[in-house]
Simulated assay, not measured.
Amino acid sequence: MPIRNIAVGHYRETTQPDALKAALAEFISTLIFVFAGEGSGMAFSKLTDGASNTPAGLIAAAIAHAFALFVAVSVGANISGGHVNPAVTFGAFIGGNITLFRGILYWIAQLLGSTVACLLLKFVTGGLETSAFALSTGVGVWNAFVLEIVMTFGLVYTVYATAIDPKKGNLGIIAPIAIGFIVGANILVGGAFDGASMNPAVSFGPALVSWSWTNHWVYWAGPLVGGGLAGLIYELFFIGFGTHEQLPTTDY
């Protein structure tokens, strides 16, 4: 059972050089991702005089986030694992793949990276607002909550299958692009309903800088539940006890 693999770790772990380097990598990767993703929305809004909530704007956001996440995961993968997302870190913790103290260090770095990215965007755009995530008309908080669970489940499940699973083999090469693609695809699905966050850090930075917290809990609770479920299910059924190993071809 994966719950037996969960490790709290020791507080001294947060002062170790490798942990601090990993946290710095998470900070930089999240800054890169949020700067490009949030910035693309701000740029499109400026070019269209505020009419960013259009099919073209949704496609532009999906492409920008997919490309930016592909890069952010790639540059952080060899140092921190390239989580770039508190929900991914939480899913890894639930599956026993990261300690609690190291995970908290990652969370702090991710939230700081998102906040700094939004502050930089506000400065370089001459004070344009970094829009916080919000629900569309007719979408209730529980609709958005379930939507965030489902989308984040797909994201963290993809992370497990392509990056964490020890049997991934050469599949690990495409992990960053697969992770970027699932986020881009989910934005095309959920972007028109609740903005398609899937990432508490991505929601936190804009909300803090614009000081807009309406329904903000949805963008924490949904992704954390979805990420935790993905980590639990993948670790339990595909990595944990009873996992079937394919026979070598010579045994057929």
Rank of each mutant, 00 (worst) to 15 (best):
E235W: 06
P200E: 04
T152M: 08
Y234A: 07
K167I: 01
A207T: 09
G169Y: 04
F123N: 10
M151V: 12
W220P: 13
P176M: 05
T130I: 05
T130N: 15
W142C: 06
I149W: 02
N215S: 15
Y219W: 00
S210V: 08
L229T: 13
I149R: 03
A134N: 11
F145Q: 13
S203Q: 10
V218E: 03
L232W: 02
D194C: 05
G127D: 06
I233G: 08
V146L: 14
W213H: 06
K168P: 00
G195T: 05
G127P: 03
S203N: 10
A134P: 01
A185E: 06
S131H: 15
A196Y: 03
N215R: 13
W220V: 13
A144R: 12
F204A: 08
G154R: 07
N199F: 04
F123Y: 14
E148A: 00
Y160H: 06
D165A: 05
L147D: 01
I173K: 07
W213I: 12
T152G: 07
V124F: 02
V183N: 12
I174T: 14
A175M: 01
G184W: 03
L128N: 10
T137N: 15
A144P: 13
S136E: 06
G180H: 14
M198R: 10
A221K: 00
F133I: 03
I177H: 10
H216W: 01
A201F: 04
W213Q: 12
L128Y: 07
E148D: 00
G226R: 11
P200H: 04
G127F: 03
V189R: 08
L188A: 11
S136M: 01
S203H: 07
S212V: 08
Y234F: 07
E235R: 15
T125W: 03
L155C: 09
P176W: 02
A144V: 09
V141H: 11
S197C: 15
W211K: 12
G205S: 08
G231A: 00
A161E: 01
A161L: 07
A221P: 04
V189W: 11
I177E: 00
G126V: 04
G231K: 09
W142H: 14
G190K: 11
A144I: 11
I174R: 00
I174M: 12
A201C: 04
T137K: 15
I179G: 13
A161N: 10
G180P: 09
T152V: 04
G140M: 02
A201I: 03
N199A: 02
V218G: 06
L171T: 08
V139Q: 09
L208M: 09
K168M: 01
L155W: 08
G227M: 04
V189I: 15
T152K: 09
G195H: 07
V150Q: 00
P166F: 01
Y219C: 12
G191F: 05
K168L: 01
A178H: 12
W211F: 15
I164A: 03
D194P: 01
L229I: 15
I173L: 06
V225A: 06
L135P: 10
